[in-house]
């Protein structure tokens, strides 16, 4: 390795780097090591886990679709157009990234709750209430994962050379054609990376979901909520469900890593 020629890495860097690795790896290894393999089938193949898994996959996938349909245009506006207040808009989009999830849940209640600023009029007009429904789970997921998606895609759009947009315009393409046939294909690796990031964030979402949508098996109880419930009375069950989520996460990561994320 060429860095060897510059001398050994200093101990002052080796020790913290090793500690960082341990901190990240030990919990995951422990989770796998302490899996009650013998009880696994009985703990895993229950109606509750089946319902939660189905709901988690459904809501995170729908949330992802919403992110793509609404978030991609937003990312395009942030990356490719110039309008007053663009920096402010970008700042607002990033707020949910740093917001505690439970606060996100409270904010969603304030907006879409029975008496919320949108939820109140909605109930008066149509009789529909959102909290504690599967739609609320999706809303919570969208709220927390959209910023990941938008920021990641905006970065990808900025890296894709805008000169290609200019070339397309000289060839007679409208901005929509350019978006569809040039910009999006060129930014595709970044878009997929954003989808993976957003989906992972959505799958793991707990705080906003339980605050805004509750924890009812079959309608709003996602995998993380189920883990939280199981932890109260059967830690082994909680570990088994967590193992499933770990497996899903690693599976998605390896599936997309080689093809899109570009890092070995």
């Amino acid at each position: 390795m060429s860095s060897d020629r510059l001398g050994r890495p200093p101990a002052l860097l080796i020790v913290p780097a090793a500690l960082a690795t341990l901190l990240l790896v030990v919990p995951l290894v422990s989770l796998v090591a302490r899996t009650p393999w013998r009880r696994l089938p009985e703990l895993l193949f229950t109606e509750e886990v089946g319902l939660a898994l189905r709901l988690s996959l459904l809501t995170s996938t729908v949330a992802l679709a919403v992110c793509l349909v609404l978030g991609l245009p937003l990312a395009w506006f942030l990356a490719r157009t110039d309008f007053p207040g663009r920096s402010l808009l970008r700042a607002l989009v990033t707020v949910p990234l740093v917001l505690p999830p439970v606060v996100a849940g409270v904010a969603l209640l304030a907006a879409f709750g029975r008496t919320g600023s949108v939820g109140g009029p909605l109930r008066d007009l149509t009789g529909i209430t959102l909290p504690y429904t599967t739609v609320a789970v999706v809303l919570a997921h969208v709220f927390v994962s959209m910023p990941f998606f938008v920021i990641s895609v905006e970065g990808a759009l900025r890296t894709a050379d805008p000169a290609y947009d200019a070339a397309a315009a000289t060839l007679g393409a409208t901005r929509w054609t350019t978006f569809r046939r040039v910009t999006v294909p060129l930014a595709m690796p970044g878009i997929v990376a954003g989808l993976v990031l957003g989906w992972a964030r959505s799958l793991g979402e707990f705080g906003a979901t339980i605050t805004f949508a509750g924890n009812f098996p079959g309608t709003t109880q996602t995998m993380p909520s189920l883990v939280f419930v199981e932890l109260q009375h059967d830690q082994e069950a909680a570990r088994v469900i967590s193992l499933v989520m770990l497996a899903i996460s690693i599976g998605v990561l390896t599936l997309f890593r080689d093809r899109w994320l570009g890092t070995p």
Partner: peptide
């Protein structure tokens, strides 16, 4: 007019062929 409506052909210095 916008670039599109000028009906020009442009050969760029760095070509800018769509790589995909």
């Amino acid at each position: 007019r916008t670039v599109r409506d000028r009906r020009i052909g442009f050969v760029f210095q760095d070509k800018l062929l769509f790589p995909h």
